[in-house]
């Protein structure tokens, strides 16, 4: 798959970073505004998909990328599980207990472990969607040879 024209590449260079930052914003403010890990992760994955579609797969070393994303995905879901298991050590002994201090409702740093869950679920969703897309692109490249 070859890249698109120069105009598309230039616009993608300008826009991809903004989309990526919007995704990070949606993830971090998941407990204050609409959004959260699922929406933000999908937006972050969308930024990478835009880059791959515009610049083509020849510019990237895709096989290394796909093993990287699947590793990131595995690590993120493991961290979510560990965060849930740590509730058995702190506070009352309940799986998924919110053991960190709650803070003031409406502040950015509040709600205990919920922002941490949001961040790691966001990483997991982004890496999973990117893995699926990269697997399809690599399959297409290999079969067209």
């Amino acid at each position: 798959m070859e890249g698109m024209s120069t105009i598309v590449k230039k616009v993608t260079q300008l826009m991809a970073g903004i989309i990526f930052m919007y995704g990070i914003y949606i993830i971090l403010h998941g407990h204050l505004t609409p959004g959260g890990g699922f929406a933000g992760g999908a937006i972050v994955a969308g930024a990478f998909i835009l880059l791959i579609l515009a610049f083509g797969s020849s510019a990237l070393n895709l096989k290394k990328e796909v093993s990287g994303t699947s590793n990131v995905e595995s690590v993120a879901i493991l961290i979510v599980l560990l965060l849930a298991l740590m509730a058995l050590l702190f506070g009352i002994k309940v799986f998924f207990f919110n053991y960190l201090p709650k803070g003031e409702p409406g502040e950015l740093v509040s709600a205990g472990v919920i922002p941490l869950y949001n961040i790691f679920i966001g990483i997991e969703v982004a890496a999973a969607i990117l893995t699926i897309f990269l697997a399809l692109v690599i399959f297409k490249e290999e079969s067209s040879k």
Binding site: G36, F38, L136
Partner: peptide, 19 residues
């Protein structure tokens, strides 16, 4: 919200099987 993301997963799985 969870069901929508699961829908994406199943659809992409079906697409992989189809191709």
């Amino acid at each position: 919200l969870t069901a929508i993301v699961i829908g994406l997963a199943t659809t992409s799985m079906l697409m992989a099987i189809a191709i």
